[in-house]
Every structure is written in structure tokens, then in C-alpha cells.
Design a protein around this nucleic acid. Sequence first.
DNA 1: CCTTGACCTTCCAGTGACTGGAAGCCTTAT
DNA 2: ATAAGGCTTCCAGTCACTGGAAGGTCAAGG
Lengths: 131, 131
Amino acid sequence: MNISDAADRSGLPAKTIRYYEDIGLVRPARSENGYRDFGETELHKLVFLGRARALGFTIEDCRALLALYEDDDRASGDVKRIAEGHLDQINQKIADLEAMRATLSHLVACCHGDDRPDCPILEGLGGPAQA
Amino acid sequence: MNISDAADRSGLPAKTIRYYEDIGLVRPARSENGYRDFGETELHKLVFLGRARALGFTIEDCRALLALYEDDDRASGDVKRIAEGHLDQINQKIADLEAMRATLSHLVACCHGDDRPDCPILEGLGGPAQA
DNA sequence: CCTTGACCTTCCAGTGACTGGAAGCCTTAT
DNA sequence: ATAAGGCTTCCAGTCACTGGAAGGTCAAGG
């Protein structure tokens, strides 16, 4: 299967698939003409990578997860540890974003947003530190 | 004031301050020896930038906000529009992360996490599409 | 006066995970 | 024979810094 079919079936852009080969995540065979030739196994890995990336795992996490996926003697504890670490990071990011949202939505709510210069948002950013 | 004092008083790393000058966000004076010399106005802008960045505004948003901050004839509506746009993006990011968290925490909860290879997390990533 | 150490300067390269584009080869259909 | 489309590689750019090298400046101590 050529790269554009692999792209269609995995949902990843062809550019991304080439990049994943560059960094050693997949190793498609090559046809005589030099084109990449994806078998079911490599396609399967692309799907796996697409799902893991969609869950926000880093490429290095994906590399580790893929190695575990292909290792019949893996310990599920290793997988779970990676996933829990990532879950902690997601929770941290959500907490950070919620703190931003709280501050910013308060400022936005206080701003009348018309053509006058008076603006609590700018005051919050530039004024003296607030409690 | 030299850059390290500006860094201490603004909370930004000196490297970041130099970068902000590079991209034209601040324009500190120069002493005869070539050192940057920050007055209160430039320091104030650094504090403003630090707060805006902490709220997740992009550098280009910061540039626009700073211009409005320095414009006595601004319309607060312009500020509010930028802030609301950013708030939308924050909300979108939170929603994305919460979706990831829901999927991932479910998978993690299903994984016994011991030394056996059986692993619902990997099955979720590599298996057939789920409803 | 000299040295030491802490500053400061500029410039270059790297981060993560792609993405866009150029230049050129291959295939398929007309 | 040619035109369109797909494939290849390689280089550069994204965002907002961050690290490090090479070298100039300054204040204190001997």
C-alpha cells in the first residue's frame, strides 16, 4: 500500500507518516521504485500512533508504548505507569488552564467593551499586583 | 537598571527579556558601555508582558494588548475582543483535555498494572475502533 | 596594577511535532 | 508524447523560548 492509502486508512497526513519513519517509529518496506510500501502491521502501528497522539502522549511516550505493544512479555504495570504519568500531566494542564480561565473571565466580565478607553482587563495586566 | 535587576523585578528570565527586545516588545535604553538600561516604563511593560503570558496570551496578542495599553485613545472593546477570543481558545483546550482525561482514565482504571502482559490500555490504542 | 569573578554583550543552535514548499523521479491515462 | 498526479528527498519555518560559546565590562581584593 502506498503512503496516501496508508494516510487515508490511518487518518494521519502523509507528511506525518514520513516524519514517523524519519524518527524510527515505523519501518515500512520499499517497493522497487523506491516508494514506501505499507503492510498491515505498519498500518496498524500508524493507527496505534494516531490514537496515542490523540490522547496527548508525547512521541517518546508513543515510542515506549509501541515497544510494549509489540512485546508479548510486557508487564502491564509498565504501560499503566506511563499512562498515569501522562494523566497527571493532563490534570496539571487542566488545572493551569482553569486558573487562567478564572482570572481572565473575571476581567472580561468587568470590561464593558465599548469605545471608551477605560478597561479593567488592561488594569489587571498593568496595574499593581492584586490579591 | 541592568537586565538582571529588571529580571528580578519583573519575574522574567534575562534571556526572555532579551528575546522580547529582539522581537520589538520592549525598547530599553542603552548605557554608554552597551548594557541595556531599563527605566520604570520598560520595567512596567515587562511586568505587563509577564502577566499576559501567564494568562496564556500569545506573543502577538501581547503585542496588540501592549499597544492598546499604551494608547490613551483605545477602545476597551478592542481589548475585550482579544481577551474573549483567547478565552474561547482556553475553553476549547480544556474541553479537549477533559475528553482525553475521560478516555485515558477509563483505560487506566481497567488496567490491573501488574507484571502480566494483558493490558486494556494497549488494547484501546491498538485494537479495533470502539464506540 | 593585576587578577578574579560576576556581570554584560552578541550570535548560533536546539526544543516538539510537525508543516509547507521546492526540485525532481515515477506512473497512468489519453 | 504529454499531462496530471503521486512519490521521493531535503530545507526551512512554526512558537516562545533556552542553552551555550566567545568575548567585552566592572567592582573588589591583593
